[in-house]
Design a protein around this nucleic acid. Sequence first.
DNA 1: CGTGGCCTTGAAGAATCTCAAATAATGTGG
DNA 2: CCACATTATTTGAGATTCTTCAAGGCCACG
Lengths: 268, 268
Amino acid sequence: MNLEATIAPIRLVPRHEPSRTAAAAPTPTPTPTPALRTLCSNCHLRDICLPCGMAHPDLARLDGLHFGRRKVKAGEELYRGGDRFAFIYAVRTGTFKSSLMLADGREQVSGFHMAGELMGLDGVANGRHASAATALEDAEVCAIPYGHLSELASGSAEMQMVMARLMSREIVREHSLMMLLGSMSAEERLAAFLVNLSQRMKARGYSPSEFHLRMSRAEIGSYLGMKLETVSRTFSSFQQRGMLEVDKRHIRIVDLDSLTRAFEPKVH
Amino acid sequence: MNLEATIAPIRLVPRHEPSRTAAAAPTPTPTPTPALRTLCSNCHLRDICLPCGMAHPDLARLDGLHFGRRKVKAGEELYRGGDRFAFIYAVRTGTFKSSLMLADGREQVSGFHMAGELMGLDGVANGRHASAATALEDAEVCAIPYGHLSELASGSAEMQMVMARLMSREIVREHSLMMLLGSMSAEERLAAFLVNLSQRMKARGYSPSEFHLRMSRAEIGSYLGMKLETVSRTFSSFQQRGMLEVDKRHIRIVDLDSLTRAFEPKVH
DNA sequence: CGTGGCCTTGAAGAATCTCAAATAATGTGG
DNA sequence: CCACATTATTTGAGATTCTTCAAGGCCACG
């Protein structure tokens, strides 16, 4: 009996290795610079990344894995839909988008990832990545061999729990995006997007009120289910109402409250 | 440092226990009829449900858990957003919807679940259910104590893998819904929905071309991000074009091919 | 200093929503 | 078993939101 049928109604384009030009393709195997091995316990991101919430024995075990780092240039893909799944990736620096591709070329951006966030968990399901990850600026990631990780987890209940939580968190995150796409207006979507970005900047020690967007209007639009022109117009509208100052990709949130209200209960 | 910020931009209404009327609330603890204990290895759903792909030693261990069954009447909630998370549920009979609630009362249906499908994995993240599950008809579920399950998984790498796959599959499923909500037209959405339903019916041994919808137009609309009137009109349009026969909730797919084409590459 | 990519803005058009009304199906209480 | 309230669905017409198409400006880069 076929379980496939219980998952996706939508046929995404499977980009299998053969269809790639071997030369241009990004190596699926990360090439860790030997000098740059990383210990989670030392990492400045340890409180918001994979080891978040881990106690010492497990953290030490995690260190035993010696993740390879990998640099990714702006515009480069870390992996593509259809690639064989072997690693999950933790962002060290830079920003990524993940995206799905429909057979006719339509792209749907399914998330943006910044320092400390994990990418690639969607590959666990079928052993192949369902989405692609592309660097929006020069970036660096830790490449975590999933096999080793789950091996390691088999020895520790706590570690298993952390992994399970991470995946579940991804599910919850997507829930929230579904809510956004399914039942919110263009203004509400953009407001929700900005407030979320602001919170994530804050959590990383950056200003929550003034930041630089790493993604284009088109990418924001794809993520939020609207056209780039609509994104641009909505930005302008927010600015005119004094909620925001926008200069290309530089954003200053002037009135966070009204921005937050923009996607909250409208009492009728 | 606050990791919460890395997840959801959208504030869902947290329905904590205190706010409930104790009498009317569905018991969070399932009340298994002692006579009706269930063994996975015997279950007619074993090939499409939790134990799918499990070999014998693990299957036997799974049997050791003795899931409690629980009957749920049409319209009743199995759990709500905010409820403490303790069980995941496998549908035995009937159909469920899961849904998220925004503070202003807007509901977003995030999935429909039929026999063999699992519900509740979103609760792993925070120990509370993020969504609610409501029976669309009289139904019965297996209530699987998550604690026991992960305990059991800590003894078996294969079992861990199955669990991880299940969660990842949920992520992929939601990806696909995002694609749908983010970049498809009303017709494409409904077509994708119907084709998916058809496949799931088929996988369960029912006719893939003729079935009964368990959900209202409004629920379909919420799931697909459109208004119930638009759902109704799109059904009518499909019918006029000879792709479908619709009589209220009874559906007969006349031309599966053109329905499939309705959400596939449009060559320009 | 010209070129291409990205962003903004306007105007017209299309898709979808809102409001409204009619019909059918279902259940309720007498 | 009937009269009546209730709910789900369909359909129409007008309003609204968002998209499409088009043009122009800005900026980085070679």
